[in-house]
C-alpha cells in the first residue's frame, strides 16, 4: 500500500505539470487570446475542429521536444492527441515504457 502512495503523489504532480505545459503551448501558439479557464483539459481538440492537421503537427513536435520522446506514426492519432488529458496520459505511459 505504502508503495502505491509513494508513486501516486509524484505521478499526479507530473501529470499536472505536463497538462500545464501543453496548455501553455496551445494558448500561446494555437489559440492566441484564449483564456486558460476556457481551455479545459478534457476539451476535445481535434474532433471539434479546434486543432487542424497542421496545428496538430506543431503540437506533436512540441510534445516530442518538451518531454524528450518520439511520437511514432501510429501513436500520432486522434485518441492520443484529442485532449490535454489524453496527451498527458500518453506522455506518462510513454515515459513509463522507456
Amino acid at each position: 500500500m505504502s508503495v502505491v502512495n509513494q508513486e501516486t503523489v509524484p505521478m499526479e504532480a507530473l501529470e499536472e505539470d505536463i497538462k500545464r505545459k501543453v496548455q501553455d503551448f496551445i494558448l500561446s501558439h494555437i489559440l492566441p487570446g484564449e483564456s486558460r479557464d476556457n481551455l479545459k483539459t478534457a476539451l476535445p481538440l481535434r474532433t471539434s475542429g479546434i486543432l487542424d492537421s497542421i496545428s496538430t503537427l506543431r503540437l506533436i513536435q512540441f510534445v516530442e521536444a518538451q518531454f524528450d520522446l518520439e511520437v511514432s506514426i501510429t501513436d500520432a492519432n486522434t485518441s492520443n492527441f484529442n485532449s490535454i488529458d489524453s496527451i498527458a496520459a500518453y506522455v506518462i505511459a510513454k515515459k513509463a515504457n522507456t
Binding site: 476556457n38 476539451l43 475542429g49
Partner: peptide, 19 residues
C-alpha cells in the same frame, strides 16, 4: 464568443483551411 467557440463555429461553416 471565446476563441474556442469561434474555432468550433468556423469548423462547422467553413472548410478547415479557411479557419
Amino acid at each position: 464568443p471565446t476563441v474556442i467557440e469561434l474555432k468550433q463555429f468556423c469548423a462547422a461553416v467553413l472548410p478547415s483551411y479557411m479557419s
